[in-house]
Amino acid sequence: MSKILEQLATAIIEGDIDNTPKLVQKALDEGLEPLTILNDGMVMGMNEVGRRFKAGDMFVPEVLMSAEAMQAGLKVLRPLLVASGAKLLGKVIMATVQGDLHDIGKNLVGMMCEGAGFEVIDLGFDVPAERIVQAVKEHKPDIVGLSALLTTTMRQMAYTIKALEEAGLRDKVKVMVGGAPVDEEFAKKIGADGYGSNAAAGAELAKKLVGAA
């Protein structure tokens, strides 16, 4: 790994929001490919963040800083990635289901997925099943991530999956679910493809669902 990529990974790990875009620019100036900068620099850093978080050596506010640094770097990189037609890990649609106004957890999973190298489309909170179906048709994502914090709204996840089935889209996307009242058992029951117990686990799961982990 070249020195600049190492510095970039370190900046991501340290959550250095100011320096990360500058290092991305420097790497581009040195002639490195955008996809190399992403995968061998930034994603390497984010993978280390995930590992440390799992081991209890990093805490949520610190992981968020890393994710923000990642986003700051991607701002520079994204137009170039699109222009070069480079393939990202995949596309994820995130939504908190209808009737539920909680979106912190969903946002965290989105940031972590972005950090892992996905393109993330955030539909926000209180999202009806029809809108999710429509977004799947429009964006053709690899994964739909559904979130709910309340026991009263978690059944909306089941209705959303059913709506995807009825629209004939269920076999075109993977569905992952998460949120405080949700567990593995519930995910299976409603026919989701996976459950993530926290933001880092959500991103891990997304990678697994596209066969990248």
Binding site: F59, V60, P61, E62, L64, E68, L101, I104
Partner: peptide, 16 residues
């Protein structure tokens, strides 16, 4: 209202 504190610098300063 309806915001969150997780990414606020105040949280980063004090959570440890």
């Amino acid at each position: 209202p309806n915001g969150h504190y997780l990414r606020h610098p105040h949280t980063r300063k004090f959570f440890k």
